[in-house]
Simulated scan of single mutants.
Amino acid sequence: MPTFNMAVEHFIPHVGGKPVLDELQKSLGFSNLDMEASRMTLYRYGNTSSSSIWYGLAYVEAKGRVKKGNRVWQIAFGSGFKCSSIIWRAMKIVDFDDKNPWTEEIAWFLVSGNLVGCEPFPSYFEPSK
């Protein structure tokens, strides 16, 4: 098994749901910190399909974790055998600003400990009439 953390500093997989994240973490040997951005994206925004990798990137930026020279690996899955990934290198220290979707609430996402049981916010919809 390759040690992916030797190649990238931040890993942001597609938020396909809790079982997908659990299996990725187990099979690729990632820590809870490696999976934090995706799990918090699932918790806060739910499964937003391919856009979840951008919410995850915004999360690590808002946490002030992306430093100059860091590599960020975004990986997304689709139906069937579709998979796409990209590795970005930060050209400067990346911090959050007022356009970051986490700006207003990042302080509330002080994560420590086990994230495996993290579930998304419940959504309740009124049927249209």
Score class of each variant (00 low, 15 high):
86 I>N: 10
45 Y>T: 00
55 Y>V: 10
45 Y>H: 09
61 E>L: 03
49 S>C: 03
106 I>A: 00
46 G>L: 01
12 I>A: 02
96 F>T: 06
115 L>A: 04
91 M>P: 12
76 A>V: 06
120 P>S: 01
81 F>H: 12
6 M>K: 14
37 A>I: 05
67 K>A: 08
43 Y>M: 13
63 K>Y: 02
59 Y>H: 02
112 S>E: 12
89 R>W: 07
39 R>F: 08
35 M>L: 11
82 K>L: 11
80 G>T: 05
7 A>G: 06
78 G>C: 05
30 F>I: 09
40 M>P: 01
11 F>D: 00
108 W>N: 06
79 S>H: 09
118 C>G: 13
72 V>I: 15
2 P>R: 14
70 N>A: 04
85 S>N: 12
99 K>V: 14
19 P>M: 07
54 W>E: 08
62 A>F: 03
16 G>D: 04
101 P>M: 01
91 M>N: 15
117 G>Q: 14
59 Y>G: 03
21 L>R: 10
32 N>L: 11
62 A>N: 06
17 G>V: 07
13 P>T: 01
12 I>R: 02
108 W>Y: 14
39 R>D: 08
20 V>W: 10
85 S>L: 13
25 Q>S: 10
79 S>R: 11
4 F>R: 08
31 S>T: 11
84 S>F: 11
46 G>I: 08
30 F>Q: 04
38 S>M: 09
4 F>L: 15
57 L>K: 02
